[in-house]
């Protein structure tokens, strides 16, 4: 999960948000030469190993590789659906966390505290089975909702930090022009906060994709579960999980590269 810290910049007058990634593959930056090459080694190394295994030891590796794409699609589906839902939850949680209304603020803060204090896997089980008690949802939908509720809390903190990074004068100027709080948020604050929010959201996306492997326990045929299905039929556990791990690695490396490109673009503007 991304940790959010503030760095007070007395000259710029407003808070600069610095987000340190504590989880997920290290984000490669151009000036960080060591990491940059580490990323290359990992990425091209993983691709080379996959290719070597699939060609030279096509039984079982090529078979495994052919069996996995369905699971990759499901993994992406869970991740994308969950992140969209988490963004919506996060927006309202973030707004709740900065709300002056004590009840709204209390609810939002409680949600964040509770979610942060319970392991993701436990939450997943809990929400999944709690949902199952009241509504009959497909496994996939329950899993997505469970992931979104978990990640919504972290998104909420990202939104809060992003909104708070905008100088107070912006809200005051908007309100002075007669805008309501909502209008000021929509037209003035959130569009500016977007720049700060986007990179950590990208990191959360990568983290969520990895964590989505947990839904394999909930009868969702994601990448990991497809691997397990193959392995238990063919008894090639080691080979299958080798392939699964390599595929996850390639996916997260590509995604974190995209995040870093996005970060660079934003900083250039």
């Amino acid at each position: 999960m991304a940790e959010i810290k503030y760095k007070q910049d007395p000259v710029a007058e407003h808070k600069k948000t610095v987000i340190a990634v504590t989880d997920g593959p290290a984000i490669p930056r151009r000036k960080d030469v060591g990491l940059f090459t580490a990323w290359r080694v990992a990425f091209f190394g993983a691709l080379a190993i996959i290719a070597y295994l699939a060609i030279v030891h096509s039984d079982p590796y090529w078979k495994i590789l052919q069996f996995l794409p369905d699971g990759i699609l499901v993994t992406f589906q869970v991740t994308i659906e969950a992140i969209v839902l988490a963004l919506i939850i996060g927006l309202f949680t973030g707004l709740g966390r900065i709300s002056k209304n004590r009840i709204i603020n209390g609810i939002a803060s409680l949600y964040v505290e509770v979610i942060r204090g319970i392991p993701l896997l436990v939450q997943l089980f809990y929400i999944y089975f709690a949902l199952g008690r009241f509504v009959n949802l497909p496994a996939m939908a329950s899993a997505v909702i469970a992931m979104a509720v978990c990640y919504g809390a972290y998104m909420g903190e990202i939104f809060r930090a992003g909104i708070e990074s905008i100088p107070r004068g912006q809200m005051e100027a908007a309100r002075s022009l007669g805008m309501s709080y909502q209008q000021a948020m929509i037209h003035v604050i959130l569009p500016q906060a977007f720049k700060t929010i986007l990179p950590p959201v990208g990191n959360e996306f990568v983290a969520l994709l990895k964590d989505s492997s947990l839904v394999s326990i909930l009868a969702v045929s994601d990448l990991l579960r497809r691997g397990r299905e193959f392995a238990s039929e063919s008894f090639t556990y080691f080979e299958t999980y080798t392939m699964v791990a390599l595929v996850y690695l390639v996916i997260t490396l590509v995604l974190s590269k995209l995040v870093s490109i996005m970060e660079e673009r934003i900083n250039v503007d």
Binding site: G169, E172, A173, S176, L177, G178, Q192
Partner: peptide, 14 residues
């Protein structure tokens, strides 16, 4: 506020 124009010391342009 609609009727009170305000120009801030630090301008606060968007």
């Amino acid at each position: 506020r609609e009727e009170v124009g305000m120009v801030f010391q630090s301008f606060n342009v968007f």
